[in-house]
Design a protein around this nucleic acid. Structure first.
Length: 301
RNA sequence: GGUACCAUAGCUCAGUUGGUAGAGCAACGGACUGAAAAUCCGUGUGUCCCUGGUUCAAUUCCAGGUGGUACCA
C-alpha cells in the first residue's frame, strides 16, 4: 500500500534585508504556491516603507497572507498568529503540497512550527497596572514579586529583564498558578512536515544591503510615513527600528543624518539578534540567496 | 621650502614620572513561550606610524624618516 503523501511547510527565514521577499516570491512562483508572512511588523498596515513590506506588484506576483492585515493599535500576539496561520495552512494545503512561511520573527515562526503553551489572553488593565508599579518601584520590586509568586521561574529567568519578569508576574496573578507550572514547552504535533531554510550572506554584504535599503527608505518618504503616524506613536507596533529614530528626528532630538545612522546601527543589531535565534535551531539549512539551484533542490517534494 | 603641533583599538580620543595600554561609540558572542524590528546579558578585538640611538627594559626619552594639521613664506 502506498503511503499518502502529506504536506510540507517551507520555512524561509533569515536576517532582515537578506533578500527574503525576492527569494520567497520566486520560490512561490516556481512551486505555484502561496506565502505566509511571519514578520511581526509587516502585519500592520500603514508601515510599508519602514518595514520594507512587499510592494503591490510583489503582492500580486504571489498570494501573501499576514501582510498589512492589522491596524496599528490592534492587539496581536504569537498565540493568535499560531491559530490564524494554522487555519490558513489547513485551507491552503488542500490546494498545495507545499506552502511557504517567510519572515524574520523567530518567535512567530517557532509558534507556528512547534506551538506555544496555553495561557489566558493578557488582561490589559493588569498589565498596565504592573508596568506602572514597576516604573514607580523599580526592578527590585519586580524581582521580589516574581520570587514570591514563582520561585522556580525566578531561578531561571533573566532577572534584569523587566519584560520577562512582568510577563511571569502577570500570568501568576491572572491564573493564580505559578508561571513555570504552565510553561511546559511541549512541542505540538503538526499534521504537516517542515523544512527549515535560512538565508544568509557574508556580514559585510548584509550590512551593505541594510545601509542601502535604509537610504532608499528615506528617499521613498520614511519621514512622511512616520509623521503621518504621529498620533499613534505610543502604540507598540511603532516601537520599531526606523520609526523610533524618525520620531526623535521629528522631536528635534536628532538631525536627519544622525537619525539615519541610528536606523542603520539598530537594523544591524536586529539582524544579529535574528541570526542568534536561527543559529540555535540546528534544523536550519543555510543558503545564500544566490543559491537558487540548491534552494530548488531542497524544496523538491 | 621654513616653523610648530599631532600620529595609540574599526572611529573619536585618554594614558603610561620608561616595566608592552583604556574610555565612549562601533563591533562581536549569547538569552528569549501572548510586547519579539521588542526586551535583556556578556566580551577589548592593539606591530601604541617606521628606522635607528640611549637603557636591564622604549608605545613613552633622543635623532632621522613618513603621513597629517596649522601658521609663515
Amino acid at each position: 500500500m502506498q503511503k499518502k503523501k502529506g504536506n510540507r511547510l517551507i520555512v524561509l527565514s533569515g536576517p532582515t534585508a537578506v533578500g527574503k521577499t525576492d527569494t520567497s516570491i520566486e520560490l512561490a512562483q516556481y512551486l505555484d504556491t502561496v506565502i505566509l508572512s511571519a514578520d511581526s511588523r509587516q502585519f500592520y498596515s500603514g508601515m510599508k516603507i519602514g518595514t520594507a513590506a512587499p510592494s503591490p506588484k510583489e503582492l500580486k506576483a504571489a498570494k501573501h497572507y499576514f501582510i498589512g492585515h492589522l491596524k496599528i493599535g490592534d492587539y496581536y500576539n504569537v498565540s493568535r498568529f499560531e491559530q490564524d496561520a494554522l487555519a490558513v495552512l489547513e485551507q491552503e494545503f488542500q490546494k498545495h503540497d507545499q506552502v511557504i512561511l517567510t519572515g524574520g520573527s523567530g518567535l512567530y515562526i517557532d509558534a507556528l512550527c512547534r506551538g506555544v503553551d496555553e495561557f489566558p489572553d493578557p488582561d490589559p488593565e493588569l498589565r498596565a497596572d504592573l508596568k506602572k508599579q514597576y516604573q514607580e518601584k523599580g526592578i527590585e520590586w519586580l524581582q521580589e514579586e516574581v520570587q514570591k509568586a514563582d520561585p522556580e521561574y525566578f531561578g531561571q529567568v533573566d532577572k534584569k529583564n523587566p519584560n520577562r519578569l512582568l510577563r511571569a508576574l502577570e500570568v501568576c496573578l491572572a491564573t493564580g498558578k505559578p508561571y513555570s507550572e504552565q510553561r511546559i514547552g511541549n512541542k505540538r504535533e503538526r499534521s504537516f512536515d517542515i523544512i527549515y531554510i535560512a538565508l544568509n550572506r557574508p556580514r559585510e554584504e548584509l550590512f551593505e544591503r541594510i545601509h542601502l535599503r535604509t537610504d532608499q527608505m528615506l528617499k521613498d518618504g520614511l519621514v512622511e510615513e512616520v509623521n503621518s503616524l504621529a498620533h499613534l506613536r505610543h502604540e507598540n507596533a511603532l516601537n520599531t527600528v526606523g520609526y523610533k529614530e524618525i520620531f526623535m528626528y521629528l522631536d528635534g532630538e536628532y538631525g536627519l543624518e544622525l537619525a539615519t545612522e541610528k536606523i542603520k546601527t539598530n537594523t544591524r543589531r536586529y539582524a544579529k539578534r535574528q541570526l542568534t535565534w536561527f543559529r540555535k535551531n540546528p534544523s536550519y539549512h543555510w543558503l545564500h540567496p544566490d543559491q537558487e539551484n540548491e534552494l530548488y533542490e531542497l524544496t523538491k517534494f
